[in-house]
């Protein structure tokens, strides 16, 4: 469960909020809005990459408003996927597991499970530079889920993909919904998640409104 109480954030002349929101566990939530409306900013606030000027961020009944990003039960898929080019696909997915101190056997097993889930078993030894956009998206999703976050934040996950890869990518996102993962998906294109979203919101000039 994610609850935002009157979140307020100011950056130069732009003001986001106050935003209040309550998202139930296991839902797939879509936030639409034009570029510069504050969608990505809202995700960065939830992820802990920005600190709000006011309000509370509650995840699973715990206040995370001032908790650093690394300690939040949040996974994030960045628009450009932000895969580490100095690591192989395997090492990218294993990164959060190594950070949390898991042993090599568990890391191999968990990376194996995730790579099967996202059909990337054959990519594990590959370098990031050689992957297609669709492959990068699946690797980034597997990595974001490796530390089993309560909520997964998707920042324009389809915008970097060619038209012909989008259908497959939407199917990949469908895996998350099927598995009951709580997802917040921000996009400027309402049509791309019309089949996935359980609830939708519109973001405009820093204000969030629900769409029925």
């Amino acid at each position: 469960m994610v609850r935002l109480n009157n979140i307020l954030y100011k950056a130069d002349e732009f003001t986001l909020g106050p935003v209040s929101l309550e998202l139930e566990k296991g839902g797939y939530f879509a936030i639409f809005g034009p570029s510069g409306s504050g969608k990505s900013m809202l995700l960065e606030l939830i992820a802990g990459l920005r600190t709000p000027a006011g309000g509370d961020i509650i995840i699973d009944n715990r206040d995370f408003t001032f908790v650093p990003a690394r300690k939040r039960p949040v996974g994030m898929l960045f628009q450009d996927y932000a895969l580490f080019p100095n690591m192989s696909v395997f090492e990218n997915i294993a990164f959060p597991l190594r950070i949390s101190g898991e042993n090599e056997e568990d890391i191999k097993r968990e990376v194996g499970v995730l790579s099967e889930q996202f059909y990337i078993q054959s990519l594990l030894k590959r370098e990031i530079a050689g992957l297609s956009g669709g492959e990068k998206q699946r690797v980034a999703l597997a990595r974001a889920l490796a530390h089993q976050p309560s909520v997964l934040l998707l920042d324009e996950p389809l915008s970097a993909l060619d038209e012909e890869l989008r259908d497959d990518a939407v199917k990949t996102l469908g895996i998350l919904k099927k598995d009951g993962q709580t997802v917040i998906h921000v996009t400027h294109n309402r049509n791309e998640v019309s089949d996935l979203a359980t609830r939708c919101f519109r973001m405009s000039a820093g204000k969030l409104t629900p769409i029925d």
């Binding site: 990003a69 690394r70 960045f78 959060p96």
Partner: peptide, 27 residues
């Protein structure tokens, strides 16, 4: 080094020092 990569490392549980040693410095 893109700041995004450092932010990604932080959302994956890395401390600032770990982000520096495993991402920023190698890149």
């Amino acid at each position: 080094v893109p700041v995004r990569l450092e932010q990604a490392a932080e959302t994956l549980g890395a401390s600032r020092f770990q982000t520096f040693t495993k991402i920023s410095l190698p890149l």
